[in-house]
Every structure is written in structure tokens, then in C-alpha cells.
Nucleic acid binder design. Structure first.
Length: 501
RNA sequence: GGGUGGUUAGCUCAGCCGGUAGAGCAGCGGACUUUUAAUCCGUUGGUCGCGAGUUCGAAUCUCGCACCACCUACCA
């Protein structure tokens, strides 16, 4: 009795038990998991090649079909049955009859389950209602599915199960398959864009002795043999610029970053970042370059630069607005004067009134930026570059020649979210050393996100980094935009989840 | 981290003022050789998220916990 209790798990339901019994029967009949079936066609290829032919044409010149896939629908009508199978390309209807495969096999087929994986041979015909269908002459059960699929009409609606059991989501949700196909094509298109322009794709370390290149808290790990701490990277920036020092003057990397921060619809602990660096360019070039990239990627993947997102049309084709922090605030809040935005006391009073978090030690630029983030950032729905960031929040960016308190830097906002961050790189090793020291002071003062002093990076700059422009683009957020996905979890195959139970 | 909502059969969901569990799909048995979420007849299947409490009696009311979603806060 206690044993029965222990095995009576949620999986031990009637359907599961019946399917296991069916598998046990299959085992008695020889190999229950045969792997000698070779398919010759994909469903979509057959649809593309023969979808336009009439039934008369298909009868006059029979077309052989040999396909495999997972059975998703089944309609048994006595001596004949219809079924729908799905492979990586799409779906195909099957017509299984006593005439075609014999009554004995057809009777066995009637007991196969939705979710089972079949191998099929036959010829193509068109049904009364015009659907291209395989009239089956050979039929094999290749893999028995023990677990029932979600309800066939509603599909998988439980968000948690979609994320935890993405394999089920992909089986039953066309939209999920499309999202991740688009994601793959976006990355392909980006890679092609860079390779076509003479960039070298590189891979830099994921485990850093000193986490750097961004303001963020890292994940810590430990190397046993060396008995030393290591950190999962928060950004590849400092390594990529070392490569520019080394003479790889145009490099890019598409890879994962890890940040030990909160999880939300816009944040996953690991996320994919594109970073690229080009010598002898500046941040203004990067803005033109980014616009060109987004247009080319959207056109390659979606066939248009007008992208629907959550009920709005985002136009990636028009020239993107370019505003300073102050200009952007004034553009969206015409009642605010430039004098107010340049008044430290006024900014502090406003931020206090909004209950916004700000660093009291911040200079005017830092306060302006915080005020911008609080009041204006979410309004930047159409692509907008915000330029001229204060130096105090940009420890790796080059100072503006005319105004040394700001940097030659921009961030690109679309749908109210930061999508990209780029700047002319700081290549003055002495200025960089001072900025690292300032970061260390902030870290010592309790800022967990402040940077460390990276002595080897300074040493690299001392060999000479050519004037360089560099940028990072959040790939997950770009894919959210291009797939009209409201949550970052919809564009990450296996988003981070708390453990079950 | 804060707020709101949710958790009932394998799946999608009902379940009123507290009276002891329902439907559709899937499954099982039967009819049916051009169906399209096939149809028709019959039928199996439940730790009502977990734990306390109130009550003669809790899926239902109260409290706590867990997980999920959404909003919000930081970061990209």
C-alpha cells in the first residue's frame, strides 16, 4: 500500500498508463524504437512542388511521397482514416485506408495516439475539399509518445508550461516556432551584415577574473584547480577592444552576457548581446551604421521596415531622431525650460517629488539623465538616438572635444526600451586609468555596479588603441521587436525559471 | 523588492449564498472509405497547489506558504 502511494505521482494517470501498456505491446513485436526509416521529403517541399496540381494531374502522373513526423490530428471513419502529421517544415494530411495498408495495419493505426511519430510512404492526391494528401501505402510507428499533448484546439495556454516545457510549446504552437525561426534568421542576417563589411567574428572569454565592460553585478564562480574566483562576463567590451589593439580593426561578437539582477519581462539573467568595434570611426558613424543594419535585417527577415509591435507600427525605415538628453526631455515636455534642466536644485526637487532614486553625489549631467529616464525614456516609441551622455556615467567613452563633461556616446531607444548603446571609445590610457580609479572609489563607497580597475586593459591601451567606435545591441530585445513579443521570455527558448517543487 | 490576479481530470475551463465534483478535448468500447477542432452512441478518469483554522460539514470562508502571470522598481 505504501509502495502504491509512492508511485502514485501526477504522471501516473490513466492515459499515461494506457500508453505505456501500448509501448509494452510494441516491445513484444520487436524493436519498439526503429531507426531505419529514411524520409525523402519534407511536408512544405511537397506542398510547394505539388500544391498547385489538380487531382487529375496527380492521378495521371503519380507523385511518390516519403515523409515522417508527429501525428497531431486523427479522424477515424471505419475503413478509412485521416491524420495530420507535422515535420520541421510544416504539416501534411494522411489518408490511411484498409485498401491502402490492409485492414490489420489500419486497425493497429486506429490505436496509435496523437503525439506518436510516424514514417509514411504513399502517393499524393487531392481530397474533395482540395487538400493535398498522402494516400498511404506504407505506415510505421517510429516513436511511441507516452505523454498526451495539450488540447488540440486551445493548445498550450499556460505561460509557465510554455517556458518550462518549450518542447511542448514548439510542437503545438505555430507562433512559437515562427518566433524562434525569426530569431535564428535575425542573427544570421546580422552576421551576414558584418561579414559582408569585412568584420571578423570572434569569441572572447565568458569567465572573467575581473568582471568589466558594463555597470552591473556579476555571477561569481570558482576555479577549483587554480583556487581562484571567476566571474561570468557582464560584457565582452574590454576584450574586444584588446583585439582592436592587436590589429583586428573590425571585430564583432554575438554571445551571452550574464547579469546578477532582477528578472522581468525585459530581463533574463543570461541574454544575448551583439558587440562590435571598428577602428577609425566615431559614434556618429555608428548611428548611420545601426540604422542601415536594422533596415537590412528587418527587410531580410520580415520583408519590410514597418514593424508591428503591440498595436503600433514601428518604422525602422525613416531616419531615426537624434536628440540630446535635454532636447529629448524638452521635446516631450514642452513646458519644461532649458534653464530648469540646467538647475541642479530644480532637478533634485523634481526627482524627490517623483520619488525617483538618484545618486545625490551625481553632477548635473547625471541628474539630467535620471530625470530623462524617469520622464521621457518610455515615450521613445519610434527609433530615437539619445546622444551626448555625461562622462560620469560613461567610464569607457571618449570625452567630447568641445565639452569634456559629456562623452561622444548614444543610446538607441525603440518601444520605450534601450536597444543599443554605442560610443567613440576612450583610447587615452591615462584618462581611462583615472576613470577606473573613480569607479573603484564608487565601489568602495558601496556601489555594487561600479567597475573594477583592470590593469591589463590599461596596459593594452598603453600600446595604443586606434581611434575606435564600438556598440552593443541587445539581441533579445531586437527579436522581441521583430516578432511582436511582449516578454523577453517569449524570445528565449529556455528562459530562466525557478526550480519546480 | 512592492502591488494585483491565478492554481479544479493529461489539456482547455465551469463550479452561485459552505451541503461532499462537472463539461468539451484526449483516452477506452461501438458505428462510419474524402475528413478538416470530423460526427454519432456509450464509458473510465480528481490529493480541487500545499499546510493550518472556522464549521455538523470547506474546491468554496479565514490565515500562512509555494509557484505562475501581469503591473511596477533596477539593469540591456
Amino acid at each position: 500500500m505504501t509502495e502504491e502511494r509512492q508511485t502514485a505521482t501526477a504522471d501516473d494517470n490513466q492515459i499515461f498508463a494506457e500508453r505505456r501498456a501500448k509501448l509494452a505491446e510494441l516491445r513484444k513485436g520487436g524493436s519498439a524504437f526503429p531507426n531505419d526509416f529514411r524520409r525523402e521529403h519534407l511536408a512544405a517541399d511537397l506542398q510547394a512542388a505539388h500544391g498547385a496540381q489538380s487531382n487529375e494531374e496527380l492521378e495521371a502522373a503519380p507523385v511518390a511521397a516519403c515523409i515522417a513526423g508527429r501525428m497531431l490530428l486523427k479522424r477515424v471513419m471505419g475503413k478509412a482514416s485521416f491524420a495530420t502529421i507535422q515535420d520541421m517544415s510544416g504539416r501534411m494530411q494522411l489518408y490511411v485506408t484498409n485498401d491502402g495498408v490492409g485492414p490489420e495495419l489500419h486497425d493497429r493505426f486506429k490505436h496509435w495516439d496523437l503525439g506518436d511519430i510516424l514514417g509514411v510512404k504513399g502517393t499524393l492526391f487531392r481530397t474533395r475539399t482540395g487538400e493535398l494528401t498522402v494516400k498511404v501505402t506504407e505506415l510505421r510507428l517510429l516513436t511511441k509518445s507516452l505523454r498526451p499533448l495539450p488540447e488540440k484546439f486551445h493548445g498550450l495556454t499556460d505561460q509557465e508550461q510554455k517556458y518550462r516545457q518549450r518542447y511542448v510549446d514548439l510542437i503545438v504552437t505555430e507562433e512559437a516556432r515562427r518566433t524562434f525561426t525569426v530569431r535564428s534568421k535575425v542573427i544570421q542576417a546580422i552576421r551576414r551584415f558584418f561579414v559582408d563589411r569585412g568584420y571578423l567574428e570572434v569569441e572572447t572569454p565568458m569567465m572573467h577574473p575581473i568582471p568589466g565592460g558594463a555597470s552591473a553585478r556579476p555571477f561569481a564562480t570558482h576555479h577549483n584547480a587554480l583556487d581562484m574566483p571567476l566571474f561570468l562576463r557582464i560584457a565582452p567590451e574590454l576584450y574586444l577592444k584588446r583585439l582592436v589593439v592587436g590589429g583586428f580593426e573590425k571585430v564583432f561578437e554575438i554571445n551571452r552576457n550574464f547579469r546578477n539582477e532582477g528578472i522581468s519581462t525585459r530581463h533574463n539573467p543570461e541574454f544575448t548581446m551583439l558587440e562590435f568595434y571598428e577602428a577609425y570611426q566615431d559614434y556618429r558613424h555608428l548611428m548611420d551604421f545601426t540604422e542601415a543594419m536594422f533596415r537590412e535585417v528587418a527587410t531580410a527577415v520580415l520583408g519590410t521596415t514597418k514593424v508591428p509591435y503591440q498595436g503600433e507600427i514601428i518604422d525602422l525605415g525613416q531616419p531615426y531622431a537624434r536628440l540630446t538628453v535635454v532636447q529629448a526631455v524638452r521635446h516631450y515636455h514642452s513646458e519644461i525650460t532649458e534653464a530648469q534642466l540646467n538647475d541642479r536644485a530644480w532637478l533634485v526637487a523634481q526627482l524627490e517629488k517623483m520619488g525617483a532614486k538618484y545618486k545625490p553625489a551625481d553632477g548635473l549631467g547625471g541628474l539630467q539623465l535620471t530625470y530623462f529616464e524617469e520622464t521621457t525614456e518610455s515615450l521613445l516609441v519610434q527609433p530615437t538616438f539619445i546622444i551626448d551622455y555625461p562622462a560620469e556615467v560613461s567610464p569607457l567613452a571618449r570625452r567630447n572635444d568641445a565639452q569634456p563633461e559629456i562623452t561622444d556616446r548614444f543610446e538607441l531607444f525603440i518601444t520605450g526600451r534601450e536597444i543599443a548603446n554605442g560610443f567613440s571609445e576612450l583610447n587615452d590610457p591615462e584618462d581611462q586609468a583615472e576613470r577606473f580609479q573613480e569607479q573603484v572609489r564608487q565601489k568602495d563607497a558601496g556601489d555594487h555596479e561600479a567597475m573594477h580597475y583592470d590593469a591589463d586593459y590599461i596596459r593594452a591601451l598603453e600600446y595604443g588603441l586606434p581611434p575606435t567606435a564600438g556598440e552593443g545591441i541587445g539581441i533579445d530585445r531586437l527579436v522581441m521587436l521583430l516578432t511582436d513579443s511582449p516578454s523577453i521570455r517569449d524570445v528565449i527558448l529556455f528562459p530562466h525559471m525557478r526550480p519546480e517543487d
